[in-house]
Computed example of a mutant assay.
Amino acid sequence: MIIAPSIETLNNLIRHQIHNLFLLNEVESEAISLSLGEALKKTEKCFGQSTNKYYKRNGNIIFSIYHSGQYCIFLYLISRQVFLDNPSNRELADKIYFLNKTLNGLDLYYEIEMPESFHLDHPVGSVMGRARYGNNFTFSQQCTVGNNKGIFPEIGNNVQMLSGSKILGRCTIGDNVVVAANSYIKDTDIPADSLVFGTSPNLIIKSRKK
Protein backbone atom coordinates (compact mmCIF):
# COMPACT_ATOMS: atom_id res chain seq x y z
CA MET A 1 0.00 0.00 0.00
CA ILE A 2 1.25 3.44 -0.92
CA ILE A 3 0.86 5.96 1.92
CA ALA A 4 0.78 9.48 0.53
CA PRO A 5 2.59 11.69 1.16
CA SER A 6 4.48 9.42 3.60
CA ILE A 7 4.13 7.23 6.69
CA GLU A 8 6.31 9.75 8.54
CA THR A 9 3.78 12.48 7.83
CA LEU A 10 0.98 10.18 8.96
CA ASN A 11 2.81 9.49 12.24
CA ASN A 12 3.38 13.18 12.85
CA LEU A 13 -0.15 14.18 11.85
CA ILE A 14 -2.08 11.85 14.14
CA ARG A 15 0.12 12.69 17.13
CA HIS A 16 -0.09 16.42 16.44
CA GLN A 17 -3.88 16.35 16.09
CA ILE A 18 -4.42 14.33 19.28
CA HIS A 19 -2.00 16.48 21.26
CA ASN A 20 -3.67 19.71 20.10
CA LEU A 21 -7.15 18.51 21.05
CA PHE A 22 -6.57 16.34 24.12
CA LEU A 23 -2.82 16.29 24.91
CA LEU A 24 -0.67 13.22 24.28
CA ASN A 25 1.93 11.82 26.66
CA GLU A 26 5.00 9.71 25.82
CA VAL A 27 3.37 6.42 26.84
CA GLU A 28 0.41 7.09 24.54
CA SER A 29 2.72 8.12 21.71
CA GLU A 30 4.58 4.82 22.04
CA ALA A 31 1.29 2.90 22.10
CA ILE A 32 0.34 4.46 18.77
CA SER A 33 3.68 3.33 17.31
CA LEU A 34 3.14 -0.22 18.55
CA SER A 35 -0.36 -0.47 17.06
CA LEU A 36 0.28 1.41 13.83
CA GLY A 37 1.64 -1.49 11.79
CA GLU A 38 -1.33 -3.78 12.40
CA ALA A 39 -3.79 -0.92 11.86
CA LEU A 40 -2.20 -0.19 8.48
CA LYS A 41 -2.41 -3.88 7.49
CA LYS A 42 -6.15 -3.78 8.23
CA THR A 43 -6.43 -0.48 6.36
CA GLU A 44 -4.83 -2.09 3.31
CA LYS A 45 -7.22 -5.07 3.44
CA CYS A 46 -10.19 -2.74 3.73
CA PHE A 47 -9.12 -0.41 0.90
CA GLY A 48 -8.14 -3.33 -1.32
CA GLN A 49 -11.79 -4.39 -1.62
CA SER A 50 -13.06 -0.92 -2.49
CA THR A 51 -14.30 -0.14 -6.01
CA ASN A 52 -13.79 3.58 -5.41
CA LYS A 53 -11.33 4.90 -8.00
CA TYR A 54 -9.58 7.06 -5.39
CA TYR A 55 -8.45 3.99 -3.44
CA LYS A 56 -6.13 2.69 -6.16
CA ARG A 57 -3.51 4.23 -8.43
CA ASN A 58 -1.83 2.37 -11.28
CA GLY A 59 -2.99 -0.93 -9.79
CA ASN A 60 -1.66 -0.11 -6.32
CA ILE A 61 -3.73 0.46 -3.19
CA ILE A 62 -3.29 4.04 -2.03
CA PHE A 63 -3.96 5.68 1.32
CA SER A 64 -3.92 9.47 1.09
CA ILE A 65 -3.98 10.96 4.55
CA TYR A 66 -5.63 14.02 3.03
CA HIS A 67 -8.57 12.01 1.66
CA SER A 68 -11.10 12.49 4.44
CA GLY A 69 -12.94 9.19 3.90
CA GLN A 70 -9.72 7.19 3.90
CA TYR A 71 -8.38 8.96 6.96
CA CYS A 72 -11.74 8.44 8.69
CA ILE A 73 -11.55 4.67 8.21
CA PHE A 74 -7.92 4.62 9.37
CA LEU A 75 -8.75 6.55 12.56
CA TYR A 76 -11.41 3.98 13.45
CA LEU A 77 -8.96 1.14 12.77
CA ILE A 78 -6.10 2.65 14.81
CA SER A 79 -8.40 3.49 17.73
CA ARG A 80 -9.70 -0.08 17.76
CA GLN A 81 -6.21 -1.54 17.39
CA VAL A 82 -4.87 0.52 20.29
CA PHE A 83 -7.69 -0.84 22.44
CA LEU A 84 -7.31 -4.45 21.26
CA ASP A 85 -3.54 -4.42 21.81
CA ASN A 86 -3.91 -3.16 25.36
CA PRO A 87 -7.34 -2.46 26.90
CA SER A 88 -5.65 -0.34 29.54
CA ASN A 89 -5.06 2.18 26.74
CA ARG A 90 -8.79 2.95 26.64
CA GLU A 91 -8.20 6.65 27.27
CA LEU A 92 -5.94 6.88 24.21
CA ALA A 93 -8.49 4.94 22.15
CA ASP A 94 -11.11 7.43 23.36
CA LYS A 95 -8.95 10.32 22.20
CA ILE A 96 -8.59 8.86 18.71
CA TYR A 97 -12.32 8.10 18.58
CA PHE A 98 -13.12 11.70 19.54
CA LEU A 99 -10.58 12.96 16.98
CA ASN A 100 -12.43 11.03 14.28
CA LYS A 101 -15.75 12.39 15.50
CA THR A 102 -14.35 15.92 15.50
CA LEU A 103 -12.84 15.74 12.02
CA ASN A 104 -15.50 13.70 10.23
CA GLY A 105 -18.72 14.00 12.24
CA LEU A 106 -18.94 10.20 12.45
CA ASP A 107 -19.83 8.29 15.63
CA LEU A 108 -18.07 4.93 15.22
CA TYR A 109 -16.85 3.63 18.57
CA TYR A 110 -13.74 1.46 18.72
CA GLU A 111 -15.49 -1.35 20.60
CA ILE A 112 -17.79 -1.89 17.61
CA GLU A 113 -16.47 -4.60 15.31
CA MET A 114 -16.73 -3.54 11.71
CA PRO A 115 -16.06 -6.16 9.00
CA GLU A 116 -12.69 -6.57 7.29
CA SER A 117 -13.98 -4.47 4.42
CA PHE A 118 -16.43 -1.61 4.91
CA HIS A 119 -16.92 1.58 2.96
CA LEU A 120 -18.20 5.07 3.60
CA ASP A 121 -18.84 8.16 1.54
CA HIS A 122 -19.40 11.54 3.19
CA PRO A 123 -20.19 10.00 6.61
CA VAL A 124 -21.10 13.28 8.34
CA GLY A 125 -23.86 12.80 10.90
CA SER A 126 -23.82 8.99 10.80
CA VAL A 127 -23.98 6.80 13.91
CA MET A 128 -22.97 3.14 13.71
CA GLY A 129 -24.15 1.14 16.72
CA ARG A 130 -23.31 -2.31 18.07
CA ALA A 131 -24.87 -4.32 15.28
CA ARG A 132 -23.36 -7.33 13.54
CA TYR A 133 -22.07 -6.11 10.17
CA GLY A 134 -21.42 -8.26 7.10
CA ASN A 135 -18.50 -7.73 4.76
CA ASN A 136 -18.52 -4.85 2.28
CA PHE A 137 -21.02 -2.85 4.33
CA THR A 138 -21.43 0.67 2.94
CA PHE A 139 -23.02 3.79 4.40
CA SER A 140 -23.32 7.47 3.62
CA GLN A 141 -24.26 10.67 5.44
CA GLN A 142 -26.83 10.81 8.26
CA CYS A 143 -27.22 7.04 8.47
CA THR A 144 -28.05 5.33 11.76
CA VAL A 145 -27.70 1.74 12.91
CA GLY A 146 -29.05 1.44 16.44
CA ASN A 147 -30.97 -0.52 19.01
CA ASN A 148 -34.58 -0.80 20.06
CA LYS A 149 -35.01 -1.99 23.64
CA GLY A 150 -31.38 -3.07 23.68
CA ILE A 151 -31.55 -5.26 20.57
CA PHE A 152 -29.37 -4.41 17.56
CA PRO A 153 -29.70 -5.44 13.88
CA GLU A 154 -27.86 -8.22 12.07
CA ILE A 155 -26.68 -7.00 8.69
CA GLY A 156 -25.61 -9.28 5.84
CA ASN A 157 -22.89 -8.92 3.22
CA ASN A 158 -22.81 -6.17 0.59
CA VAL A 159 -25.52 -4.08 2.26
CA GLN A 160 -25.69 -0.41 1.23
CA MET A 161 -27.27 2.33 3.32
CA LEU A 162 -28.00 5.45 1.28
CA SER A 163 -28.21 8.96 2.69
CA GLY A 164 -30.41 9.42 5.74
CA SER A 165 -31.43 5.76 6.08
CA LYS A 166 -31.90 4.03 9.43
CA ILE A 167 -31.89 0.41 10.63
CA LEU A 168 -33.02 -0.09 14.23
CA GLY A 169 -33.84 -2.96 16.54
CA ARG A 170 -34.55 -6.61 15.84
CA CYS A 171 -33.78 -6.66 12.12
CA THR A 172 -32.09 -9.24 9.94
CA ILE A 173 -30.97 -7.59 6.74
CA GLY A 174 -30.14 -10.08 3.98
CA ASP A 175 -27.16 -9.99 1.64
CA ASN A 176 -27.05 -7.50 -1.23
CA VAL A 177 -29.75 -5.22 0.19
CA VAL A 178 -29.90 -1.52 -0.72
CA VAL A 179 -31.66 0.68 1.82
CA ALA A 180 -32.96 3.69 -0.09
CA ALA A 181 -32.35 7.27 1.01
CA ASN A 182 -34.33 8.34 4.10
CA SER A 183 -35.80 4.86 4.63
CA TYR A 184 -36.54 3.78 8.21
CA ILE A 185 -36.39 0.07 9.05
CA LYS A 186 -37.40 -0.90 12.59
CA ASP A 187 -37.85 -4.46 13.90
CA THR A 188 -38.33 -5.74 10.35
CA ASP A 189 -36.49 -8.49 8.45
CA ILE A 190 -35.47 -7.73 4.87
CA PRO A 191 -34.86 -10.58 2.41
CA ALA A 192 -31.63 -10.80 0.43
CA ASP A 193 -31.30 -9.07 -2.94
CA SER A 194 -33.84 -6.37 -2.10
CA LEU A 195 -34.27 -2.65 -2.54
CA VAL A 196 -36.13 -1.09 0.42
CA PHE A 197 -38.12 2.15 0.53
CA GLY A 198 -40.28 3.87 3.11
CA THR A 199 -40.88 3.51 6.82
CA SER A 200 -41.66 0.49 9.00
CA PRO A 201 -44.19 -1.06 9.19
CA ASN A 202 -45.19 0.21 5.72
CA LEU A 203 -42.02 -0.60 3.82
CA ILE A 204 -41.89 -1.16 0.07
CA ILE A 205 -39.54 -4.04 -0.75
CA LYS A 206 -38.56 -4.73 -4.34
CA SER A 207 -36.42 -7.55 -5.70
CA ARG A 208 -33.00 -6.67 -7.13
CA LYS A 209 -32.49 -10.04 -8.82
CA LYS A 210 -32.05 -9.97 -12.57
Rank of each mutant, 00 (worst) to 15 (best):
N147S: 15
N135C: 02
F139P: 07
E91R: 08
N136V: 01
E111Q: 10
C143K: 05
V145S: 02
M114N: 06
L84A: 03
R130P: 14
R80D: 11
F137G: 02
N100D: 12
T138D: 00
P123C: 10
R90G: 12
I96P: 04
S165K: 05
F139H: 13
R132V: 14
N135W: 04
F118N: 05
L162Y: 12
L120V: 01
I112V: 15
N135T: 08
P87C: 03
T138Y: 15
N104R: 10
C143Y: 06
S79K: 02
G156T: 01
G164V: 11
N86A: 08
V82Q: 02
F152V: 04
N86H: 06
K149E: 15
L106R: 08
N147Y: 09
G125W: 00
P123L: 08
Q81N: 10
F139T: 00
L99M: 03
Y97E: 13
F152R: 00
S126V: 02
I155V: 13
K101S: 15
S163A: 15
R130E: 15
L106C: 08
R90K: 15
D94W: 07
H122R: 08
N148I: 10
N158I: 02
Y109V: 12
M128P: 05
F118R: 03
K95C: 03
Y97G: 00
K95H: 01
E91M: 10
N147C: 13
R132Y: 10
F83S: 07
N147V: 04
L106Y: 09
E111R: 13
Q81E: 15
G125S: 07
Y133H: 03
L120Y: 04
I112P: 00
E113A: 07
S140V: 01
E116M: 12
F118D: 01
N157A: 07
S117E: 03
E116H: 10
R170Q: 15
R90D: 14
C143F: 09
S126P: 03
D94T: 04
N104S: 13
V124K: 09
M114H: 05
K166F: 04
G146I: 01
N158S: 03
I96Q: 04
I96V: 06
L120A: 01
P123T: 12
K149Q: 15
N136T: 03
H119Q: 13
M161E: 06
T144A: 13
F98H: 11
G125M: 11
S140T: 15
N135F: 02
F152T: 00
E154V: 13
K166D: 06
Q81T: 11
L106F: 07
D107P: 01
R90A: 15
N147F: 04
F83Q: 09
E91C: 07
G164C: 07
E116S: 14
R132E: 14
H119P: 00
G129Q: 09
D85Q: 11
S117N: 15
L92G: 12
S163H: 10
Y109H: 15
Q160V: 13
N148L: 13
K149C: 11
V127W: 02
G156A: 04
L120T: 06
N86F: 04
V127L: 04
D107N: 09
M161R: 03
Q142C: 08
E91Y: 08
K166T: 14
R170G: 00
E91T: 13
V145A: 00
K95I: 02
A131K: 00
F83L: 15
L120M: 13
E111D: 10
D85H: 07
L108C: 12
L92T: 11
D94M: 06
S140H: 08
F118S: 05
